[in-house]
Design a protein around this nucleic acid. Sequence first.
DNA 1: CGAGCCAACTAGGTTAACTATGTTGGCTAA
DNA 2: TTAGCCAACATAGTTAACCTAGTTGGCTCG
Lengths: 123, 123
Amino acid sequence: MVKNTGRPGYLQIADDLRAQIRGGALAPGSLLPSTAQLAERYDASLSVVKMAVGILRNEGLVIGQQGKGVFVRDAEVAPATAGALEGEVAELRTAVQDLSARLAKVEEQLATSTTHRPGRSSR
Amino acid sequence: MVKNTGRPGYLQIADDLRAQIRGGALAPGSLLPSTAQLAERYDASLSVVKMAVGILRNEGLVIGQQGKGVFVRDAEVAPATAGALEGEVAELRTAVQDLSARLAKVEEQLATSTTHRPGRSSR
DNA sequence: CGAGCCAACTAGGTTAACTATGTTGGCTAA
DNA sequence: TTAGCCAACATAGTTAACCTAGTTGGCTCG
């Protein structure tokens, strides 16, 4: 599959997957083919597929879940609207506040239990 | 240098370099240390450094020139790209997701190690 | 002196192997 | 039937190796 153009293979695959997502061929919430399947489809090595998926993951287009697969993210596909970004920023801000509160709670628990801890951890 | 924090090394290095660029420690137009130098500085392998630089390159913060090095891009040029803000939001989103996942893991460990104890409010 | 080669750098791309970790489903034994 | 183990498969991270290709500076040879 990977053409002989100067464009690297992992970018070609990322472009193709991105186009499929934007075009609707891969609907939001749907599961991408596994790394091995993509490698076979594009006739590429596992490494380049992992790199391509990593790019999309970095762009926020997909979300990888260990053990399950890579899912297409519910898109903020609207590229133009600047207001969408504001909403997303607000969402991120609340998320950060939530994380701060939870982290404070965990830190407090850790501080109170450090003297004698059951130490029950395994695996 | 690296970590114990569970955050992948290539992300830590990318974060550090990004902070240096945003903070002005690495001025626009200046040359980043070579891959080998960065690998030694962060006590990481060449691969993770290349991945980190690749992320910044993908974000448009730096431009790599074969045979010469990796240069910090002019700050005014970067926003010219349409998706600069989106990229930054996506970056923050992945950071929040990462933090959320790590915090959830810590919370779970705390919850299970103390078997059941009062004062644990959930989300 | 100058042209050209060459060695030593550089980034970039690709592949393979290994480890870690999480999910799932099937099998087995109580 | 049910609980638990376990194999298979998934993403994710890391490392090492090899190759291409561009740049640079020094050295040699004409």
